[in-house]
Amino acid sequence: MAERPIRLAIVDDDPFVRAGLAMLLRGAGDIEVVAEGADGAEAVALTDAHAPDVILMDIRMPGVDGLVATERLRARPRAPQVIVLTTFDADDYVLRALRAGAGGFLLKDTPPLEILRAVRIVAAGEAMLSPAVTRRLIDRVADPAAAARRGEARERLARLTGRERELAAAVGQGSSNAEIAAALRMSVPTVKAHVSRLLAKLALNNRVQIALLVQDASS
């Protein structure tokens, strides 16, 4: 029996962006575009109506922006995964969205095949996040709370076992479950189980937040 397609929603205030993304994504046999919205309020409403697995979410929109919508959605049980759409001049918004639980981000000029890959990766519970880009984002944002976050992050990581810290570091480097399994000599299901326990222990809801915690600790 074939797996059901990934249910996807697109939220962007530019109708041409929505149309282009929908045309691209509808051509993929394993992705079903179930809804489109023009702002964050519509993102919340269409989630209630259509239960998407993944939302492609613009950040800068009138009314309720993508950041607020991401925070509201990711605070829910059985929340959809969120991939934020952005340009680098919105770095501070991107970081806030990732800390709120977004599964990754894409620049609006990302090649079509990479957009498809990102949707599949995030739908599978992994992160579409490059550590180099994360570092660039963090370095570009003037954040007076960075020192406090560094201390808190180091304290939280210090509570982990040695193996858990190894796993957190690997997630922070952007490694996939398969790459972590090979490096730490585990099976992929074992890695998935460890990541789930790590999320519970750190009170986080996805691996992007683990990566940001590791980045905070090393900043």
Rank of each mutant, 00 (worst) to 15 (best):
E3L: 09
R4L: 09
R7M: 07
V17Q: 06
R18Y: 11
G20H: 06
G20M: 05
L21H: 06
A22F: 12
L24A: 09
L25P: 11
R26N: 14
G27C: 05
G27S: 10
G29H: 04
D30T: 06
D30W: 01
I31C: 06
D39W: 09
A43D: 04
A51H: 14
D53R: 05
D53K: 05
D53N: 12
M61Q: 06
G66K: 02
L67P: 08
A69G: 10
E71D: 11
R76Y: 02
P80V: 02
Q81I: 04
L85T: 01
T86H: 00
T87M: 13
F88H: 13
D89K: 08
D89C: 08
L95W: 04
R96Y: 02
L98H: 00
L98T: 01
R99T: 03
A100R: 02
A100L: 03
L107D: 08
K108C: 07
P111T: 08
I115Y: 01
R117K: 12
R117A: 12
R117W: 04
V122G: 01
V122Q: 01
A123R: 01
A124K: 11
A124H: 13
E126I: 02
L129F: 01
L129V: 03
P131V: 03
P131F: 01
P131C: 04
R135N: 12
D139S: 14
P144A: 13
A145R: 15
A146D: 15
A148S: 15
R149H: 10
E152P: 05
E155I: 07
L157P: 01
T161N: 12
R163A: 15
R165Q: 14
E166P: 00
E166W: 01
A170E: 08
G172Q: 06
G174M: 11
S175K: 15
S175R: 14
A178M: 09
I180W: 03
M186P: 10
S187V: 05
V188I: 13
P189D: 04
V195G: 00
K201C: 04
K201F: 01
R207S: 09
A211Y: 03
L212V: 09
L212P: 02
Q215V: 11
Q215A: 15
Q215C: 10
Q215D: 14
D216G: 05
